[in-house]
């Protein structure tokens, strides 16, 4: 599953300031490490800016300009500190006290910083767990709903040992693939699952590599909701996956 696709819709809600707190925390953590999503966010904000331009035309009253300039004139300016003359005999003592104070302040600040970091980390982990729990609950609910269809994939034109089972919910746009006896692939290749809709091009539905027993699971790849699946197929693709199949399917499946 592509992490970027997973966050794609959340980014626009984040840009608009309407992403719920828990998801926001998870996304903000991801943004720290992901330049691609940061770039996407900038582009979405660019779209917001342009949307704002679309309604330009109103002129503020003249008094608004005067009011702003008056307010700016009252803004505080940096003032040079006044020189303070002190008697020289206790100057060394003053320096000693100042140095001690600096050490104490530094220690307190460092302890405080560490506590804050720990608290933020705990809060973040808690929010992340809660989001994961909710996602898992929704996932199980959608796959156990009466409308969820089951697909069994068998090997095409090869002995029938490799097998894949897809459970797909059209309404929720969620699926899980359970594959077994899958042949091992070279490192530069991966298996890719495709949702073949009733009309239109195949939709990527997740990349996977089998474990040493030949088993693999694809859970909840990002998919559009409401797509009616005609079938599912598996192809062998370059390690990064492909936006459209580049080889013939090695496995295909029908509902049932």
């Amino acid at each position: 599953m592509s992490t970027h696709e997973q966050f794609a819709d959340d980014l626009s809600l984040y840009a608009l300031g309407v992403l719920p707190d828990q998801e926001r925390l998870v996304l903000e953590q991801h943004l720290k490490d992901c330049s691609r999503c940061r770039q996407e966010l900038e582009e979405l904000r660019g779209g917001m800016g342009l949307l704002a331009f679309s309604i330009s035309g109103a002129k503020p009253p003249v008094r608004a300009r005067e009011r702003l300039m008056a307010a700016i004139a009252k803004e505080p300016k940096t003032r040079p500190g006044r020189a303070v003359h002190r008697t020289p005999w206790w100057r060394p003592l003053e320096w000693a006290i100042a140095a001690s104070a600096v050490v104490v302040v530094f220690m307190l600040a460092s302890q405080n910083g560490e506590l804050r970091r720990q608290l933020a980390s705990l809060q973040f982990n808690m929010a992340k767990q809660q989001v994961k729990l909710e996602q898992a609950e929704n996932f199980v609910a959608s796959l156990t709903s009466p409308e969820a269809e089951h697909f069994t994939l068998i090997a095409a034109k090869t002995p029938p040992q490799p097998q894949g089972k897809v459970i797909y919910s059209q309404q929720q746009g969620t699926l899980v693939l359970l594959a077994s006896n899958m042949p091992e692939l070279p490192p530069e290749k991966t298996y890719e699952l495709w949702l073949i809709p009733k009309s239109g091009a195949p939709i990527p539905a997740g990349l996977f590599k089998p474990d040493r027993h030949g088993s693999a699971v694809v859970a909840k790849p990002p998919l559009p909701t409401g797509t009616e699946a005609q079938t599912f197929a598996i192809t062998v693709e370059p390690a990064a996956g492909s936006p459209a199949p580049t080889s013939k399917p090695i496995m295909v499946g029908e509902p049932g």
Binding site: S12, L13, G47, L51
Partner: peptide, 9 residues
Amino acid sequence: IRTGLKALR
């Protein structure tokens, strides 16, 4: 919302 904002840009 996402595709709309991207389309504008």
